[in-house]
Nucleic acid binder design. Structure first.
Lengths: 106, 106, 106
DNA sequence: TCCGTTCTAGAATATTCGTGT
DNA sequence: TACACGAATATTCTAGAACGG
């Protein structure tokens, strides 16, 4: 039987760092959408509940539960943090990281 | 076509300090026009009600409710204060800060 | 009537950055000891519950609720993070930051 | 070597305080 | 009191560095 992690990583792109494939997998899992989700237009994502994300999602995919380690990886891969003036929410954005376009990471 | 940044930030200009984008956002909100508004010609703005602006508007956009901190930022960004001798109101002016021209801040 | 913040900051040392006086005040407040407390020997402190500390304590003393901003300040003031191998908890340590010795910060 | 995890620091902007006028 | 500005501290976002698997 596949672990939940493997079952959701089946769309992994080869030659793409594991971190990015995992991030897609996380965002593609409806179960996690209360703690992390794509923005409405699918060009950024939001961490909605820091506590739930850290303790509920991170340890499933990574060897830690630290939001700061996750953020460090995002910056490593050139994601930018953007503020939405209206909602005051923080979005993470990367020009090549788009919903339904996991293919263009290659 | 909009840059990805614009779509996510609703009118924020990238590479422009948050203070200036927030100032535009404030002046673009009709709800706030009783406490702060563009001058008639759109080349300056007026703080009409210090108390209402400090306590009603500032904390929505900034981490404080102090008019003096707001003014300090205006001075930091080279706004000039102009006195209207007739009305005794104070106008703040910056050559590149114009109504409907948020784009030229870049 | 004193605000809760002021009442607990009455022992503030003059000429000491507000951050350090606030940190003493936090650690001196029994109410907060479930989320942050001195180590047994009083030579370090532990953040016991990140979520409770971030959302329950930080906004009372600072203009944010971000653990990372708090940590940035600790590093700025040369605190070091130490690992307790037994409990796997994280301790923050500074040679001059000791329980019952707020005076030596001067 | 590469990638991941952790701890600390750099850099830019923001907020407060004080001084001179 | 108001005003402009320097300076110190605070807040945010990103990156450096060390270490481990």
């Amino acid at each position: 039987m596949l672990s939940p992690l493997n079952s959701v990583l089946t769309n992994s792109q080869p030659n793409v760092p594991s971190f990015l494939n995992k991030l897609y997998a996380i965002l593609s899992t409806p179960e996690y959408n209360s703690s992390i989700s794509w923005s409405e237009d699918g060009r950024a994502f939001i961490i909605l509940d820091h506590n739930l994300f850290s303790n509920g999602v991170l340890p499933v995919f990574f060897k830690h539960s630290n939001l700061s380690s996750f953020i460090r990886q995002l910056n490593m891969y050139d994601f930018q943090k953007l503020k939405n003036m209206d909602t005051n929410q923080s979005l993470f954005f990367h020009p090549k990281f788009l919903r339904d376009r996991q293919d263009i990471l290659n």
